[in-house]
Computed example of a mutant assay.
Amino acid sequence: MNDFHTAQAGGGYVFSYDKQDTEATLEAKLDRWLSGADPNAIGMEPAEKQTLFSFYWAASMMPANGACFTDMANPACGTDLSKWMARELGDDPRFVRAYEAAKKPLGLPPLQTGGH
Rank of each mutant, 00 (worst) to 15 (best):
M1D: 12
D3V: 11
F4M: 05
H5W: 10
T6M: 14
T6L: 10
A7I: 00
G11M: 14
G11T: 09
G12A: 11
Y13G: 12
V14C: 08
F15P: 08
F15R: 04
F15Q: 04
F15H: 13
A28L: 03
A28R: 07
K29R: 15
D31Y: 11
W33I: 01
S35I: 02
G36K: 06
G36A: 10
A37W: 01
D38V: 08
D38Y: 00
I42L: 02
G43D: 14
E45M: 14
A47P: 01
E48W: 09
K49R: 15
Q50P: 03
L52N: 07
F55N: 12
A59H: 07
S60Q: 09
S60R: 04
A67Q: 07
C68R: 03
C68K: 00
T70F: 01
T70H: 09
D71T: 01
D71Q: 11
M72R: 08
A73N: 11
P75Y: 10
G78L: 00
T79V: 08
D80Y: 01
K83S: 03
W84A: 01
A86L: 10
R87L: 12
E88N: 09
E88H: 08
L89A: 13
G90D: 09
D91S: 13
D91C: 08
D92N: 14
P93E: 14
R97A: 14
E100V: 05
E100P: 01
A101F: 08
A101T: 15
A102Y: 11
P105R: 09
L106M: 11
L106F: 13
P110R: 01
L111A: 05
G114R: 11
G115Q: 15
